[in-house]
Design a protein around this nucleic acid. Structure first.
Ligand code: FES
Ligand code: FES
Lengths: 152, 152
DNA sequence: GAAAGCCCGACAGAATCGGTCGTATACTAA
DNA sequence: TTAGTATACGACCGATTCTGTCGGGCTTTC
């Protein structure tokens, strides 16, 4: 169906891991990478991007590393994915600046954009905290359904 | 965010077009392709796949072409996308047969699979008919929210 | 100052996607 | 019967995107 990039997956995993270790002041990219067995350098770049978008705080030097910039309840999966994968949309056309050349003829775009909004809404309703304690994630998502604005 | 392939987009457009012309017994791939200005041969292959999965009926020879196999209300966007893009999932891992090698360590997978279900539910609630008359699509999607089963 | 860490751009290999071509087959109409 | 129209299918290639690596530079702590 719809695929999330591995980078975004890694990013979510890392944030979840950070959320699970709130006592430590900071964890290095290598620490997290080793914990999950994912490429350290790649994860480092991902965490750097998350830092640049303000989701993480970084600290160089010995015993440095990354820490969540906010409460894990205040960070949504949506933000993470958007920060890493960029603002892509479900319609293969509406990608950033230039619109699809056959936009006028394609009448499918509009309803699908609405679907996109729904998905974004669900993703926004899931916080890193929810991932850390998986049990509540489902409930959270169900709640959010009423909140998603589908009507223009 | 999450991108739909162009092929799936084309497929939805074509089906919508067919739904809009219920009086004609069949429309050739070229007819539809010309109507939207998309590559004819590519669309042909897409329609062939949709035929093989039972969403369309094909008829060779003169005045042949494709027609919907069922009522447009009974064909969901989900079926179309699945037929074309295959059963991909939001987690980059769970792709078909072989699971991700780091599945045991990745605890993110489960909650995201639930998101995937939600998306599938929304997509299932949208029929080709809804696309043809865009107005009601939003309402349909909103309705469906209560129906999506998120709890295991 | 040296080691541990972050920062960042460039780049290569792999996979996927978009699209084309050629050929075989089926059906219809004249 | 024959010509024309259209589907069916597989192979193939160029373009794009994704994944991961390398290298050099900068900061902080010890
Ligand atoms: S393909 Fe571009 S608007 Fe749908
Ligand atoms: S990356 Fe494979 S299970 Fe999440």
């Amino acid at each position: 169906m719809l695929r999330l990039t591995k980078k975004a997956d890694y990013g979510l995993m890392a944030l979840k891991y950070l959320a699970e270790h709130p006592e430590t002041p900071a964890l290095s990219a290598k620490d997290v990478a080793d914990a999950y067995g994912i490429p350290a350098q790649l994860l480092a770049k991902i965490l750097q991007r998350l830092t640049k978008t303000g989701l993480l705080r970084s600290h160089a030097g010995m015993n440095g590393g990354y820490a969540l910039a906010r409460d894990p309840r205040q960070i949504s999966a949506f933000e993470v994915i958007r920060a890493i994968d960029g603002p892509l949309f479900i319609t293969s056309c509406t990608k950033g600046t230039k619109a699809c050349e056959l936009t006028p003829s394609c009448t499918i775009k509009e309803p699908l954009a609405r679907v996109n909004e729904t998905i974004a809404g669900v993703l926004k309703s899931i916080s890193i905290q929810d991932l850390a304690e998986q049990e509540h994630a489902a409930g959270k998502a169900r709640e959010a359904h009423g909140l998603v604005a589908l009507t223009p």
